[in-house]
Design a protein around this nucleic acid. Structure first.
Lengths: 186, 186
DNA sequence: AATATGATTGACTAATCAGTCGCAAAGATA
DNA sequence: TATCTTTGCGACTGATTAGTCAATCATATT
């Protein structure tokens, strides 16, 4: 494992444990087993480290979802596969998902270029619009529907991670959550 | 306005603007127009200030919701009044609500005594259980239903605060959101 | 007026912070 | 082997931090 990845891993863990400003760059370097200055070879500033981390983690999640998206033109099926994939990824990557959550409700979110965020959201909005056009989803503003889906994802994750469920129980709850969600928007 | 309230007001604003650790206690004192040391007369440490702020803001919100809860034994009606009150309060107290959000997904949340959180959640769980017993709400784990309701509240707030809606549009969207929510859990 | 009490002050400190820089080690090329 | 390039090092710095404390102020009581 190269130094950059070690830095990223340590940074993620410490950020989730102690918050962004609560984590000193020196601590990150120490935890990663590299010198203080090495960190600044890969990231010019601490802010750059934080935002770069967010973008890369988000991309990783997006790639996983894309890979696990059902190859179908059935909107419900596609949406379900994405909803499940989101939650499976979140449960398997708790630290990364918590990092995303923390980042979303922090002032750092404003430092990420709007374009990057838009590009990641766009395919989901298209899918929703598609569902509305086909009469499968209620005629509501697309980004309102998107807000409902995202928040449900976060809510279900919160619930699942707060209790010691088995894999099977988690799976069942996620399936059930999608049924509830779909019933709400269709 | 007394010094303590000035400190609280300044702290809230700065915490939301720059994050918890990104806000120096000296900045808070300066912004509040009080001396550095005065802050530590009211709050022993910075951590105490942050968590005390959270508890007090949460209590304020809870009181508002309680005051605006429908006096009825119709579960749907009670739940609706609480859902609306939550969102009206959030929109009218954007800084405080953002502070709550930020706090929730920060490591500070672990520093609040579990008992305090439980006490604030309990009445809502009771209401949900009541709805289930009366056959009005689906037979699901109570705190699962609670998670769905909370996350929907946050999601609708996020949507509303991201666009320049009029009061009437906000009101309509909130009403509609409750109908969707109720349809999902009943 | 004299005294007492609690609130307020801001200079101060020891610790910690993000970020720099000159130098060494490790490869790469020849 | 000699030279160049990349990567890594960690002591260092100037700025900033949370928190302290002795002195001052405002107000109330006698």
């Amino acid at each position: 494992m190269n130094k950059k990845d070690k830095i990223i891993e340590a940074a993620l863990r410490l950020f989730v444990e102690n918050g962004f400003h609560g984590t000193a760059t020196s601590k990150i370097a120490q935890e990663a087993g590299v010198a203080n200055g090495t960190l600044f070879q890969y990231f010019n500033t601490k802010d750059e480290l934080v935002t770069a981390l967010y973008v890369s983690v988000k991309e990783e999640m997006a790639k996983y979802i894309e890979k696990n998206t059902a190859k179908s033109d059935n909107v419900r099926e596609v949406m379900k596969s994405q909803f499940l994939a989101s939650l499976f990824w979140a449960l398997d990557n708790a630290v990364k998902f918590k990092f995303i959550q923390q980042f979303h409700s922090s002032p750092y979110i404003g430092k990420v270029e709007q374009e990057i965020i838009q590009n990641q959201v766009k395919p989901h909005l298209t899918l929703i619009q598609n569902g509305i056009d086909k009469g499968l989803i209620k005629k509501l503003p697309v980004d309102f529907v998107y807000s409902l889906i995202s928040s449900q994802t976060f809510g279900v994750y919160q619930y699942l991670s707060s209790k010691p469920f088995t894999k099977v129980q988690q799976h069942d709850t996620i399936e059930q959550s999608f049924e509830l969600l779909w019933g709400m928007i269709r």
